[in-house]
Computed example of a mutant assay.
Amino acid sequence: MQVTPEHNEKVAKLTFASVFPHYIVKVEKKGRTLAELYEVITWLTGFDQKTIHELIDKKVTFKTFFEKATVNPNAGLIKGVICGYRIEDIDNTLTQQVRYLDKLVDELAKGKKMEKILRTS
């Protein structure tokens, strides 16, 4: 699928707070923990748990969320298809970063080993 400017705008305006509960349900339903979810988010963004909750409380958009993040330099190693989009082919940086997060959460829910998810081995 091709990412459109309208899609990029929609992603930018989405609040992290509106998506985070879905991440929790997805990983816990598959037997993974909230602590593992925080670990994945922290690896990608550099945010600690306290900061994640401050951003949730402020209802920041994904645009603001990733503007404040220090994206892991190994994030470019995240490849594959998520939500019908090939991550490495997305040319909008913000949309690509959101899809990185989606992919990491998906891999966590699918039972991948943490060192594989975090691109450490």
Rank of each mutant, 00 (worst) to 15 (best):
Tyr85Arg: 11
Ala75Val: 04
Leu77Ser: 10
Lys30Phe: 01
Lys113Trp: 07
Cys83Lys: 15
Lys68Asn: 12
Lys59Gly: 03
His22Gln: 13
Tyr100Arg: 07
Val81Lys: 09
Glu39Ile: 01
Phe20Pro: 04
Val40Lys: 04
Arg119Lys: 15
Lys26Tyr: 08
Phe47Glu: 10
Val27Gln: 07
Val27Tyr: 06
Asp89Asn: 14
Phe65Ser: 04
Leu14Ala: 14
Gly31Asn: 03
Glu67His: 12
Lys13Glu: 13
Leu77Asp: 11
Leu44Met: 11
Lys29Glu: 13
Arg32Leu: 06
Glu36Lys: 02
Arg99Phe: 15
Phe65Ala: 04
Lys113Arg: 15
Ile117His: 09
Asn8Phe: 01
Gln96Ala: 14
Lys63Gly: 01
Val40Glu: 05
Thr51Lys: 15
Leu37His: 05
Ala17Ile: 01
Lys13Phe: 01
Gly80Phe: 09
Phe66Arg: 02
Lys50Pro: 00
Glu28Gly: 00
Ala109Thr: 02
Val3Asn: 03
Phe62Val: 01
Glu67Val: 03
Lys68Arg: 15
Glu9His: 11
Val81Gln: 06
Val71Gln: 08
His22Val: 08
Gln49His: 06
Val27Asp: 07
Phe47Gly: 09
Glu39Pro: 01
Val25Gln: 13
Lys59Thr: 00
Glu107Asp: 14
Leu44Arg: 09
Thr120Asn: 09
Thr15Arg: 10
Val11Gly: 12
Asn74Met: 14
Glu28His: 04
Gly80Cys: 08
Asp91Ala: 09
Leu118Phe: 06
Glu28Asn: 11
Lys30Asn: 12
Phe47Ser: 12
Leu37Phe: 05
Thr95Lys: 08
Glu28Trp: 02
Asp48His: 09
Arg119Met: 12
Trp43Asn: 10
His22Ser: 11
Lys30Asp: 05
Ala12Phe: 01
Ser18Pro: 00
Phe20Val: 02
Leu94Lys: 09
Thr42Asn: 13
Glu107Thr: 00
Lys26Ser: 12
Arg99Val: 03
Gly46Trp: 12
Gly31Asp: 03
Phe47Leu: 10
Thr33Cys: 11
Ala75Tyr: 06
Leu104Ile: 05
Gly80Val: 06
Thr61Leu: 02
Val60Thr: 05
Ser18Arg: 06
Lys79Met: 07
Lys59Asp: 02
Val40Cys: 13
Tyr85Gln: 08
Thr95Gly: 12
Ile90Gln: 08
Thr64Trp: 01
Leu37Pro: 05
Lys29Tyr: 06
His22Ala: 12
Phe16Pro: 03
